[in-house]
């Protein structure tokens, strides 16, 4: 799939801001820039401070909107959470290479941890839903699950505190041999475990990596992902990589 060319959109209008849990929000913005599942935008809603924009994945999109699902965890996301309908954000994107959808075949597992569930919705929309199982781990209260269920996707939940679904990590309810292809997005240690399980079972796995970014477009080299082919840039060569090529312990 060819990716649309990226743009810098100043003053994109906020259409909706929904609070889903204590610290998880969904922001919907008017923009025609779209993208593909797994791609992201550099987002800012402030002027000079903080200095850098924040990378956020595409959660949902259509011809004239993009939604982001995000968790408040610092200055930038706190400022995003203050936005109200009618407010403005600056977006640069869509950026990076998303999931290689053509390679997802047979029974597909999407294994996510926490806010890593963000790109799952737009990805599931492009897959044959009956073949998709989402295995989603959360610390506590789940979010963004109801809509996946309405798509007709099979969703299995694990929570660390046992407040919903199975108590424990999502990797404990993930059985790789039951699937033909796997996608994973979440904290690095969790994805490393998923990659290891998939490698053991010989199941191909695509992982969406996270790294701190400055430019977001491939120019500054602050976001390396060590791979068997040397350092790749998470922002421009990724964020989605073949899990078998990533050097996880580096």
């Amino acid at each position: 799939m060819t990716s649309p060319s990226p743009a810098c959109v100043e003053g994109a209008t906020v259409l909706a801001q929904e609070r889903l849990t204590e610290d998880v929000y969904r922001l919907t913005v008017a923009t025609t820039t779209g993208g593909t599942p797994g791609q992201f935008y550099m987002v800012r809603s402030w002027d000079r401070e903080p200095l850098l924009a924040r990378p956020i994945s595409i959660h949902k999109m259509n011809e004239d909107t993009v939604s982001f699902l995000y968790q408040v965890c610092g200055r930038g996301t706190e400022l995003l959470a203050r936005l109200e309908e009618g407010g403005e954000v600056t977006l640069t994107g869509p950026l990076g290479h998303g999931f290689r959808i053509g390679e997802l075949r047979g029974r597909i597992a999407i294994v996510t941890g926490g806010i890593g569930i963000a790109p799952t919705f737009c990805l599931a929309c492009m897959l044959p839903v009956r073949d998709v199982t989402v295995i989603a781990g959360f610390e506590s209260t789940p979010y963004a699950v109801a809509e996946l269920l309405t798509l007709g996707v099979d969703v299995r939940v694990a929570t660390e505190d046992g407040s919903d679904g199975t108590r424990g990590f999502c990797t404990e309810i993930f059985d790789p041999p039951a699937f033909d292809t796997v996608v994973t997005c979440g904290p690095m240690p969790m994805m490393a475990r998923v990659a290891q399980l998939c490698a053991g079972a010989g199941v191909p796995c695509q992982a969406s990596l996270e790294a701190r970014m400055a430019c977001g477009i491939g120019a500054c080299l602050v976001c390396p992902c060590p791979t068997v082919q040397g350092n790749q840039r998470v922002c421009a060569d990724g964020p989605v990589f073949d899990a078998a090529e990533v050097i996880w312990h580096a």
């Binding site: 200095l51 850098l52 500054c220 602050v222 976001c223 580096a250």
Partner: peptide, 21 residues
């Protein structure tokens, strides 16, 4: 280039440790 974290935001600035990759 350098291993580990390569960027850190500071008030009105940033620190980098790319290491001539």
């Amino acid at each position: 280039g350098n291993p580990g974290l390569r960027v850190w935001e500071t008030p009105a600035g940033m620190m980098n440790s790319v290491g001539l990759q």
